[in-house]
Design a protein around this nucleic acid. Structure first.
Lengths: 154, 154
DNA sequence: CTACACCTTCCAGTGCACTGGAAGGTCAAG
DNA sequence: CTTGACCTTCCAGTGCACTGGAAGGTGTAG
C-alpha cells in the first residue's frame, strides 16, 4: 500500500509518517519503481504502536529507541523490559496524580454549585476559584490590579 | 516578598513567573519603589493553582481565562463551572485511556518475562515489541531495512 | 568601596511534534 | 493529451511552554 492508504488506515497524516521516517521512528520505507513509499500491514501495526506509546507519554525518541531494539540482537530484551518497567512506574504516578487532581476538581465544582448565585456578584472575588477556605480568616479577597492584560507574546 | 522567594516557595523559576505575567496568566505584580515585583501569599496560591491546573492538562491560556474570570462579575460563575465540568470530562477520559494503556503495558511486560531469553536472539524480531499475537499466522517477522538511521531533524 | 546576590528589561533560542507550501514527478480516467 | 489525485523532496513556519543571556540597576555585608 502507499502512504495515503496507510495514513487513512491509521489516521496519521502522510506528512507525519514521512516525518517519523525522517527522525528514525519509522525505518526507511521500501520504495516502488516510481520512488513511492510502499507499506504493509506491519507498518500499520507499527504506527498504531507509536500512537499508543505516545498516549502513555513516551516521547518519539523513546519510542524510536524501543522500536530500534528490534533487530539488534544481544541482551536487548532486558533493555526493553527495563524501559517498560520504568515507564510503568511513570504511568502509575501520572494516573495517581491525575486522580488526585480529579478529586480536587470535583470538590471545586461542588463548592461552586453549593453557592448562592447572589454571592457571585462581588466583582473582586469568585468563590469557586481562589484559595481554598483558610483557617487564618484571610479569604483571598483582594483587588485584581488587572485591567486589559497586555498579551505581548512575540 | 520578592520574585526569588516566590520562586523558592513554589518551585517555579523566576523566569517562568515573569513569563506568566507577560502572557497574562498572572496579573501584573505590584512594584516596590525600586521597581522590584512584590508578591504575597495569594500569589503563592495562584501559582500553585496554575501548577495544579497544568497537571490536569489545562493549557496556560485556559488557566488564564479561568483566573481572569475573577473580578469580572456577571454570570461568570456559570462560565467557570461550565469550563470545570467540561474539563472533568476530559480528565476522566484521559485517566481511562491511561488505565487502558497501563493494562496493555502490563500484558506486554508479562509476555516479555514469560519468554525464554533464547528466543530473543533472532536479530530480526523481538517478541516483546511488534504485533500482538495474530490469528492469521503472520507474526511480524520481516526485515528492518534499517542500518544507522539518519536523524536529520532540522 | 567593592563584591556579590538579586532584581530589571529585552530579545533570541530551545525542544517537541508537527504542519504548510513550493516545485515537480507519476499515473489512471476521460 | 490534459486533468486531477497522489506522490516526491526540501525548507520554513507554528504552537506551546519555557529558557538563556546580555546589559544594567539595587541593596547589604565586609
Amino acid at each position: 500500500m502507499r502512504i495515503g492508504e496507510l495514513a487513512a488506515l491509521t489516521s496519521v497524516p502522510t506528512k507525519t509518517i514521512r516525518y517519523y521516517e525522517g527522525i528514525g521512528v519509522l525505518p526507511p520505507a521500501e520504495r516502488g519503481p516510481n520512488g513511492y513509499r510502499t507499506y504493509d500491514t506491519d507498518d500499520v501495526e507499527r504506527l498504531r504502536f507509536i500512537k499508543d506509546a505516545q498516549a502513555t507519554g513516551l516521547t518519539l525518541d523513546e519510542i524510536a529507541t524501543v522500536l530500534r531494539l528490534r533487530g539488534a540482537g544481544e541482551s536487548t530484551c532486558e533493555h526493553v523490559t527495563h524501559l517498560l518497567h520504568h515507564h510503568l512506574l511513570h504511568l502509575d504516578a501520572r494516573i495517581e496524580s491525575l486522580q488526585a487532581t480529579r478529586a480536587r476538581l470535583v470538590s471545586m465544582i461542588e463548592r461552586a454549585e453549593a453557592l448562592d448565585p447572589a454571592d457571585c456578584t462581588d466583582p473582586n472575588r469568585c468563590q469557586t476559584i481562589g484559595s481554598q477556605p483558610r483557617e487564618d480568616g484571610a479569604t483571598a479577597t483582594h483587588e485584581l490590579h488587572g485591567g486589559p492584560v497586555a498579551h505581548t507574546h512575540h
